[in-house]
Every structure is written in C-alpha cells, then in structure tokens.
Amino acid sequence: MALPFRIEPHDQPIPAAERAVRMADPGFGRVFTDHMAVIRWSEAEGWHDAHIAARAPLVMDPASSVLHYAQEIFEGLKAYRLADGSTALFRPEANARRFRDSARRLAMPELPEALFVEAIERLVEADRDWVPAPGVDGSLYLRPFQIASEVFLGVKPSTEYLFMVIASTVGAYWKGGVRAISTWVSPDHTRAAPGGTGAAKCGGNYAASLLAQKEAIAQGCDQVVFLDAVERRWVEELGGMNIFFVFDDGSIATPPLTGTILPGITRDSLLTIARDRGMTVREERYAVDAWRADAASGRLVEAFACGTAAVVTAIGQVVDAAGRFTIGDGQAGPVTTALGDALVAIQRGAANDPHRWLHRLA
C-alpha cells in the first residue's frame, strides 16, 4: 500500500544555536524535534491523510476511546549518524512487523509495514539535523504509536485511529553512564499472564509495571524483575527490558517467548550475534531459586538486560524477599561487554553487517 505524503515544514523550527544547546546533554526522552509524522485511519477511508507536520499538542475530545479503554500501541527504535555522515535506522522492518502483531492483539487496524517504515524515513529526513554527529554517544530515538480516536463511550474497537511518529534526541539511558544495575524481584506483582497482552507492545503493560518499579526504587534498586503469573517461580523480564544469563561454560540463556514476554528486537539481535560467534544459546525457563543458587556457586557469572533504549546493561545485584545476592563481581562481565559492543558497532556502521540490519537513508 502506498500513500502520498504531504510535507508541511515547520514555519518556526528551533534555531540552530538553540538546537545545539539542547542536543549537548539531552538525557533521555526530553528533547524533541521539530516535526511529527501523522496518518489517519477510518472504517470509511482506511489509511489516509499521510503527512509530516510541525510537532504540536494534540486536540482530543474527552470521550476519545483511547482515554477510556486504552486501545494504544507503540514502538521504539533509533536512527544513527554514521561515520560518512549518512543516517541509518536499525531494523525498522522488525519494528513494523511487531507493530502489526500488537495491533492485531488489541483489535486495531494493521498499518502496512512499508508505510510504517516510510513514515519514519520521512520524519528522519525532515529532522536530520537532530541526529547526533558520528562519535557522539547519542542517537535519534523514534516513537511510533497508534491510538483509538473515535469519540464514543461504548466498549468496542474504535472506528477511527491516529498513527503518529515523534522523535527525540537522546543520550545515555542511565543517568551517570554505563554501570551495572541492581534489580528487585517483585514478590506480589506480575507483568502479564498467559492469554494476555504480554507479547504486545502496549501502554497497559507498562502501566501495570509501574507500582512494582516504584517498589524497586524503594528497595534501593534500579529496575524490577517479574516472575511468571502462574507459579511465581520463573524469571520473565524486567519492567521494560528482556533478560539474559551467562554461565561459566560460556553459554547464555534467556526466557523463551511463550506469549507473556515481549519479543524484543534487541533480544533477537543479541541471540543472532551470539550464535554467529559460535556460542551455545538456550531459550529456556530459569527459576529465581536457581538464579540465586547459581550466582552463589559461581555457575552463573553474568546477567544483563537489553532493550532499544538502554541497549545492553549489566545486572550486578539482585534483591528479593530472601535478601540480596551479587552476580560475579557485580560489574559488567566480558560476555556482556563483548555482545553489547558488537551490537553497537553494527548499529553505528562500524562493523560488518551480515544480516543487513542497517537501513540506510538516501
């Protein structure tokens, strides 16, 4: 499906000097670009009215469906400035596929993958100056999302939707730079149950994680770890990231995708890189009791979390109802570092890209 994109440039973009100030230390998710991409859907017209416009507040009726029944999905991906000055996206086609899967689960119309990618390309082209220079530890974070916009209070799928992409210049996800984080294993709260929306990237999943994340902070930890909803035994994922375990025989493991875990694109990329390097990779369940025992015995030597925002982050300490334990020496280990470095090198065009993950813009 092809749609003509209407380009409406911002008539008062951020001046270059002010843009440079904002980009110098952007943090994460607070510095936004000049434009946004918009596509509308209705039962009568399907996908239509594709355009790039000045970023501006939304005007919504208080009875808009999304505000009451949470029909909302989103994605996250990044654009990078390469050494030759060109710009590239990392695996946008994978995000497009997952976006369609999420839409299907939430009874929303599925945006064609090519149109999803084109909307992102058009926005990056319009806001190319917001992509950090090569060599700078930063990127342009892209947030595509889709919301139900019908004005109606009945409980049913909406008949109107709004797809948008906004962009934010970002630096490191963790304040203070790269370090090993601590995690709190939630004893009371779960992220998703079988048959639920755990595999969809929808806002409701993240809303459900926030109370447990608040408890993690109260315990002096950076992130929460969720166990399965049935047995409260098996490690599933963090509040917003997948999790990996590294063992003393050089193998790595991560929980399997059983419908309650988000199929992370960073997760998939790391699994592929590890297999390319000849590592033994297992997608299998891992009990929280085994996590503690293996860390104590030395069988488990590293653990790390991964996601688009933080990329790869070592887990140094774990806190649960039984107390606190340390993984390895509490710092990022060699496998975590090597896999993270390999992924970043591909993302920034500094390494061979055998799977053609980089999507270079003209």
Rank of each mutant, 00 (worst) to 15 (best):
L106G: 08
L58T: 03
A199H: 10
R299Q: 10
N242G: 06
P92K: 12
A309Q: 09
A253L: 15
R143I: 13
G307E: 04
D276M: 11
A148Q: 03
D61P: 03
V311K: 05
A63Y: 05
T190R: 13
I261C: 04
E160T: 15
I39Q: 00
G154D: 14
A309P: 12
D320R: 09
P109T: 12
A351Y: 08
L361S: 00
A63H: 11
V225Q: 06
R40N: 08
A50H: 06
R100Y: 01
E118S: 07
R299T: 14
L77F: 08
V319I: 13
P134I: 00
I327D: 01
M36N: 03
N95E: 08
G349A: 10
V124P: 08
F247Y: 15
Y206P: 14
V151Q: 14
D289V: 13
L3A: 10
I181M: 14
N242P: 07
F245T: 04
A332W: 04
V136T: 14
Q219N: 06
H68G: 07
E160D: 14
R232C: 02
A56C: 09
A305E: 03
T183G: 07
A148I: 02
D61G: 05
A207P: 11
E72H: 11
P334C: 01
E93D: 13
S139Y: 06
A44F: 00
A126S: 14
T260D: 03
D353I: 04
V246W: 03
T258D: 15
A293D: 14
H10C: 11
S139V: 09
Y80T: 07
P354H: 12
R299C: 04
A107T: 13
V170L: 02
D61C: 07
R356Q: 14
A20T: 08
L358K: 06
G220L: 04
D289A: 15
F32M: 13
H35V: 12
A362H: 11
A351C: 12
V246L: 05
R299D: 05
A44S: 12
G177Q: 11
V38A: 09
R348F: 01
A17H: 10
I217H: 13
V230T: 13
G349S: 09
L123D: 04
R282A: 15
V178T: 09
R98P: 03
L140R: 02
A200K: 03
T169C: 15
A216P: 07
G76R: 10
T33E: 00
W357N: 06
H10V: 00
D294R: 09
M23L: 12
H10I: 00
A114D: 15
R6T: 15
I327Q: 01
Q213M: 04
I243K: 00
K78Q: 10
F99Y: 12
P92S: 13
P256F: 02
R179S: 03
D11K: 11
P134M: 00
S186A: 11
T258L: 08
V59L: 13
